[in-house]
């Protein structure tokens, strides 16, 4: 047992102004996430939201995989703030922490990108489907195998996927727990770019990351907000809500 620090790394890109990285750093375990790591990520997101120097947030993982899911072996205790929500059954702390995390990512008012190589499963998949832009290696395995572990998948993909891509693809991926390749995910529209697996995705994606980091932030935030709200609003209500949009949103 080593005491190597496996906490996610949070740092600014040396070459692209405004780009902040959150990089999972537990490569020996394919970057599976425990609740303490989720907490670190959530805190880093809050900091990035209010840091005017940050114009784009990118999630990635060290090593062979982006993220193979939640750490279901070393069950971390629920964090203090969630204890009162804990269900007293033998099912652990439940997904409350992960709910908070992916909701923060989803509502983040600046561009969010995920870079996926190897695997993006379970919690990794939840993070990916909460980002604006998904970039993968062509051989990346992508999806949610929780059905095969006799687990729930209570993190909102049943809502998100049916809105991200046409519903007819849904049963194949989710009900059967089939994994998609990056290439196929691109074909059905879930992934926006695929790249050669032999090259570091940060390098392959640098052009698109630079582009996203340079966009006018306020305009982006307004459009993103109305895209996400628009999923749950009637057409007329969305039109009305966007009329007063610019005055309400006041971040750069």
């Amino acid at each position: 047992m080593t005491n190597e620090d496996t906490s996610p790394l949070v740092f600014d890109d040396p070459n692209i102004t405004g780009l902040r990285h959150i990089r999972l750093n537990n490569p020996n375990k394919l970057n599976v996430l425990n609740s303490a790591q989720q907490e670190i990520i959530a805190a880093a997101i809050t900091v990035a939201q209010y840091d005017s120097a940050v114009s784009c947030l990118v999630f990635s993982g060290e090593g062979r995989a982006f993220c193979a899911g939640n750490d279901i072996i070393t069950k971390a205790k629920a964090l203090p703030e969630y204890r009162q929500h804990q269900v007293d059954l033998e099912i652990g702390s439940g997904p409350i922490g992960l709910h908070d995390l992916i909701t923060k990512i989803r509502n983040f008012p600046k561009p969010t990108v995920v870079l996926m190589q190897g695997f993006a499963l379970g919690a990794g998949y939840d993070i990916a489907t909460s980002c604006d832009i998904r970039i993968a290696t062509s051989d990346c395995k992508f999806g949610d195998p929780r059905v095969h572990r006799a687990l729930w998948a209570a993190e909102g993909w049943s809502y998100k996927i049916t809105r991200l891509i046409p519903q007819s693809y849904f049963s194949e991926m989710h009900l059967r727990g089939e994994l998609l390749s990056g290439e196929y995910a691109m074909e059905i529209g879930l992934v926006h770019r695929t790249f050669n697996p032999d090259i570091d995705l940060r390098e392959s994606a640098s052009e698109i990351l630079r582009h996203l980091a340079s966009l006018p932030g306020k305009s982006y935030a307004m459009a993103k907000d109305s895209l996400l709200r628009g999923l749950d609003l009637r057409f007329e209500d969305l039109q009305i809500s966007t009329r007063s949009h610019p005055a309400e949103l006041n971040y750069k």
Binding site: P111, D132, I133, R134, K160, R163, L164, I165, P166, G189, L190, H192, I208, H211, L212, P216, K218, S219, Y220, M222, A223, K224, S226, L227, R229, G230, L231, L233, F235, L238, Q239, T242, R243, H245, P246
Partner: peptide, 27 residues
């Protein structure tokens, strides 16, 4: 740096899915 407020943010995700609408409108 313009405003997207015609209702397209309602229409486009329903036509082609949010993922591809994001690609056109945000990316």
């Amino acid at each position: 740096a313009e405003h997207v407020a015609t209702g397209i943010t309602h229409i486009l995700p329903r036509l082609i899915g949010l993922s591809q609408a994001t690609r056109i409108l945000l990316l």
